[in-house]
Simulated assay, not measured.
Amino acid sequence: MSDWLTRYQSGQRDAVWHEFRELGARVHDRADEARAVCDEMARRARHNVELIVERLTGDGYRFHHNDDDQTPATPLVPPTDGAEDHLAWLRDTFGPLPLTLESWVRLVGDVWLVGTHPRWGTSASADPLVVEVEAAKYGGQHRDHLAEEYEAWQEEPEGLYELPVAPDQLHKENTSGGAPYGIVLPDRCADGLFAWDGGRMPFVSYLNRVFADGGFPVHTGTDEEWEVRHRLAEDLLPL
């Protein structure tokens, strides 16, 4: 169990995440060491996102919102000077946060890969990666919206609360869909639970699945997508 960061960097990533899961909230007995691993995970994720964005941009990909006008969107908004303040607000509002979520907010930022590829017309249907936690582009309205939704949930709680961080697959392609993807809160563990498509999995497991497919984890069955997805995923770092 010793020297988690060195072991993670040497390739023992699965073993380290397994130990974190076994420890649960007790991981905070060695919070600084666990946080160092989560920060390294976030730096690797940031590298992957930047590489995907660079490759998509070179392809002529149009990053846009999931609206009728396909309003241009910024694919990666780095953490702002208010990122730590937003984390404090999240803790005050929802309780403890998983360390991987904190590291994502501090080191990655907001990711929005929805758009249209010039050679892969159904790319928006492939569930492109979106993780917006600070949601800086929405300003203070985002906090107000989250607080109102959480207050309504507390009046009639159903299951575990899931902090919304992304539209679901159908909403990403601008059609009616289900509940947004989210992170289960409160959570004092190292890695959080990512809720999507009616199920839950560790956040890092979800990210690894997405990066293995170049940021587009749902196969749409077109001839063009394999070449595009394969090239996007090439040399991305496992988390």
Rank of each mutant, 00 (worst) to 15 (best):
H28V: 06
E132H: 06
D110S: 05
Q169D: 15
L160P: 15
F63W: 01
W120R: 07
F63G: 07
P118T: 03
H28F: 01
L51Q: 14
G82K: 08
Q169E: 15
L76E: 10
P75T: 01
V210C: 12
H171Y: 05
F203W: 09
V16S: 01
S123A: 15
C189R: 15
A136I: 07
P164R: 00
A233T: 08
W104A: 02
V49I: 12
R43K: 09
P128G: 08
E102P: 05
R91T: 15
P217H: 05
V204S: 08
E148T: 11
H142V: 09
D127C: 11
R229W: 07
L5Y: 03
G221W: 05
G215H: 04
F94Y: 06
L236D: 11
F194P: 05
A166W: 01
G58D: 13
L99Q: 10
G140H: 06
D39W: 00
G60L: 03
P167M: 06
H145M: 12
D81Q: 09
L170Q: 14
R229N: 12
F194Q: 06
A34F: 01
D168P: 00
R55N: 11
H219Q: 15
T116S: 11
G159R: 11
G95T: 03
E234M: 09
D59P: 08
R30Q: 14
P118W: 00
D14C: 06
S103Y: 01
Y138S: 13
R62C: 08
V37I: 07
T220E: 15
L76V: 07
W104T: 03
D85N: 13
Y8E: 07
V184P: 06
R46P: 05
R13T: 14
R44T: 03
L97R: 02
A166Q: 03
V165T: 03
E173A: 11
V16W: 00
G60A: 02
R13D: 12
W196V: 14
R21H: 10
F20T: 01
L129R: 04
L170P: 04
T175E: 14
A179H: 02
P118F: 00
L113Q: 07
L107I: 09
H64L: 05
P79Y: 00
P72F: 00
F194T: 06
G199P: 08
C38R: 01
R188D: 15
L232D: 06
V218Y: 12
E224N: 14
C38E: 04
V105S: 04
S123W: 10
V130Q: 03
E162S: 14
G82H: 09
V108Q: 02
G192A: 08
A179L: 13
P75Q: 00
A166P: 07
T57K: 04
F63C: 06
L87G: 05
V49R: 01
D85I: 10
L99T: 07
W196H: 12
K137W: 12
L99C: 02
Q70K: 08
R26V: 05
P78Q: 02
Y8D: 06
H47A: 09
Q154I: 10
P164M: 00
E155P: 11
T71D: 10
F94A: 04
S176M: 11
D223Q: 12
V133K: 02
T175P: 01
H171D: 11
N66V: 02
L160Q: 15
S205V: 12
Q12D: 15
W104M: 03
E158I: 13
T80E: 10
S176I: 13
R91I: 13
N66D: 14
V210L: 05
